[in-house]
């Protein structure tokens, strides 16, 4: 491919961004509130990119907002200011002269909208590989789920995503060769077996109470704390948050035995399950 010799590679990628939605224009007040948030989770904000959203500000407030001061404040507090969003026309000139980038405003849901929690049925996707279209859709859902603002806001409020991960998916029947199952945003619990040639995936952890024989992918959206638990470890491939291991290449003595797998320093650790 010629692409390998080209000077650059240009592609769209989804990045985690913090969205700071301003409700007030008083820089002092903003600083105090931010400082409070940062004290709750000091490491969470270090060098983290932030987009300032002005959709909740009135025209009048927009004019009063000192964009230069805001930028300085964010830099001082170790944020990386990326740009402004939902800026009113009245603010446009000021934003440009103060060195802010203007991001295309999102046409997505209004800011007041509550967090949408999918019903478990929507979260569950059992697919059959014979239809490539379906599979592509499935992969779509895995890889291009956009970062929602609510998600970020919630992260700021709770400093963790645990409340989103409480939904689990319980499967009672065997997962057969060629079948895929994906528990979006939660844990996956399989009461029966998974066959060789099957694929079980979850954003959270995976528990399998029959023999685990196919591919198993926990933390597919990057959750490094996700774990895999099984009664009989016979999997072909084990993946947690992108770190993978073929069981046949592993030196573990737990093949065919109860095991728990977790990630430690980018390495998969297979331990006996008591």
């Amino acid at each position: 491919m010629i692409a390998t010799q080209s000077a650059l590679e240009l592609k769209g990628e989804m990045l985690m961004l913090n969205v700071l939605r301003l409700q007030d224009v008083d820089i002092k007040l903003i600083e105090e509130t931010l400082q409070q948030k940062r004290n709750e989770a000091p490491l969470f904000f270090v060098q983290s990119p932030v987009v300032v959203d002005c959709s909740n500000l009135s025209q009048e407030q927009g004019k009063q907002l000192d964009l230069r001061a805001l930028r300085r404040l964010l830099v001082r507090m170790d944020f990386v200011p990326v740009g402004l969003r939902n800026v009113s026309n009245a603010m446009l000139a000021a934003s440009m002269t103060s060195g802010w980038n203007i991001l295309r405003s999102s046409t997505k849901h209004p800011p007041q909208k509550a967090l949408v929690i999918n019903t478990p049925d929507e979260n569950a996707r059992v697919t059959e590989n014979t239809s490539t279209e379906e599979q592509e859709q499935n992969e779509d859902a895995v890889s291009t789920e956009p970062v929602s603002e609510d998600q970020v806001n919630e992260a700021i409020e709770n400093t963790s995503l645990t409340s989103r991960q409480k939904q689990g998916l319980i499967i009672e029947r065997p997962i057969r060769s060629g079948q895929q199952i994906y528990a979006k945003r939660g844990d996956l619990i399989i009461l029966s077996q998974t066959s060789a040639g099957s694929e079980v995936m979850a954003d959270g952890s995976i528990h399998v109470y029959g023999p685990l024989r196919g591919r198993v992918l926990a933390g597919v959206k990057g959750n490094k704390k996700a774990r895999i638990f099984c009664r009989s470890l016979e999997a072909e491939l084990i993946v947690i948050a992108g770190c993978y291991q073929l069981l046949d290449e592993s030196e573990t003595e737990l093949k065919g035995k109860p095991a728990m797998i977790h990630l430690e320093d980018e390495k998969l650790i297979i331990e006996p399950l008591i």
Binding site: E128, S177, G178, A196, G197
Partner: peptide, 23 residues
């Protein structure tokens, strides 16, 4: 045996019974 496993998967996901939530 592997192919049988595969057809079992199709049976329980693509049949009319499966579409109606039956087994």
């Amino acid at each position: 045996v592997r192919d049988s496993d595969r057809i079992l998967g199709i049976l329980q996901s693509k049949s009319r019974a499966a579409e109606n939530g039956d087994v």
